[in-house]
Design a protein around this nucleic acid. Structure first.
Lengths: 210, 210
DNA sequence: CGCCAGATTGACTGACCAGTCAATCCAGAC
DNA sequence: GTCTGGATTGACTGGTCAGTCAATCTGGCG
């Protein structure tokens, strides 16, 4: 029943169970015993592999977030238009949700959107993602692909915020889920941020009155 | 003593204290005694005015959120371009943060971004805000002011998500705060969502006359 | 004054739960 | 076969805290 990697496999089992429990009940309202039960493992074993309940969430967040950061760096290095880079980044995040909705829910709800608790702890990592996206925008502004009406930092926040809000829409059941919806969402976020809502023709009629 | 006089004042004192404590420590990690201490009031008095810790947060969220919804409805009713409507809505949310950062922090961190706990409870109210913004976009698409490349629902999510992300930037100390920054943030969010990042042909015409 | 009702107090309780630990299991080494 | 060390177990502890409640205060009123 047990082979060389049995120990690490159990660790994985606990992590995967924790994802399900955190997604279902939330980090603060679940008990460590819930995780142990979900994993089909004794309570104490959780503390054999992790030093605290917090550390389980930290582990889940970090192992996924670093993948995201690496992917963004890799995409940024490609020789493609900035708009396409943003599309690839959006697609990766949406794919992450498609592939493991529970994990993305936990990361977003319990970490990136939780300013008081884990958000504080992982501030530097979260910021790194904004900075990388801002760098994509800045480079595109230098080549003239993007206009300079907005600072790269704001553009990055708006872009990331729009994606996260869409994921939140799925998490909250405010948006329908499905293959078509995932594709559409990716395209729409990029289209909104890059193309804007304004109609190109008749622009003079929309001059602000204030 | 007039019913609603000093009694209601104490209730307010407790609510205001709760805002400060929730903002500082977070809803889950603070104690009811912290709120009582902050308010300069005995522990038991909190339960004279509120039936539970949860109810305090519910009250704080609802009284502010309903103001937001009313303001959006009022703005939508005005006879101004959609782009200006979005600007007014963004400005109101940013002003809410400027006027009471702690309250907005609590509302965003503990309610609108907390899918598992209070977000669930107030789902209908939160959704109402998206729906109202989507309606602004839909109407503008009908008159041709906005193009129809993106559905109103997605545009609303992207717009609201971008604003909330900027507020989160302030909450996390990722963005500098100040009068100039507040004005700029409002303009940039609207510019990003309406104008887009692309330096497309004819972009000059699409840029607003500021 | 004496009475009432609502405001106010803070000690107390009952439940909950993260983390500990001593005991037990088990697989491979020799 | 037995030794060893990590894997595994789950009962237990210690502390925390939401919510209760009986006592006390206060101010209006007849």
């Amino acid at each position: 029943m047990a082979q060389g990697g049995a120990a690490m496999e159990k660790r994985r089992v606990i992590l995967d169970a924790a994802v399900r429990v955190f997604a279902r009940q939330g980090f603060h309202t679940c008990r460590v015993s819930d995780i142990a039960d979900e994993a089909g493992v004794a309570y104490g074993l959780v503390y054999h592999y992790f030093s605290s309940k917090d550390q389980i969430l930290d582990t889940l967040f970090l192992e996924r977030w670093h993948v995201l950061l690496d992917v963004i760096r890799e995409i940024d290095a490609r020789e493609i238009p900035a708009r396409e880079k943003l599309h690839e980044i959006a697609a990766f995040i949406v794919d992450s949700y498609r592939h493991d909705p529970d994990l993305m829910k936990v990361i977003i709800v319990e970490v990136t959107r939780a300013a008081n608790t884990f958000g504080r702890t992982h501030l530097a990592d979260i910021r790194e993602a904004y900075d990388l996206i801002a760098e994509v925008v800045r480079a595109a502004q230098e080549t003239g692909e993007f206009r300079t009406a907005v600072t790269p930092e704001f553009a990055a926040l708006a872009f990331y915020g729009a994606i996260e809000q869409v994921l939140t829409g799925w998490i909250f059941d405010l948006l329908p889920r499905g293959e078509a919806e995932y594709e559409q969402a990716t395209a729409f976020v990029v289209e909104t941020i890059c193309g804007g809502l304004d109609a190109a023709v008749g622009a003079e009629a929309r001059r602000p009155a204030l």
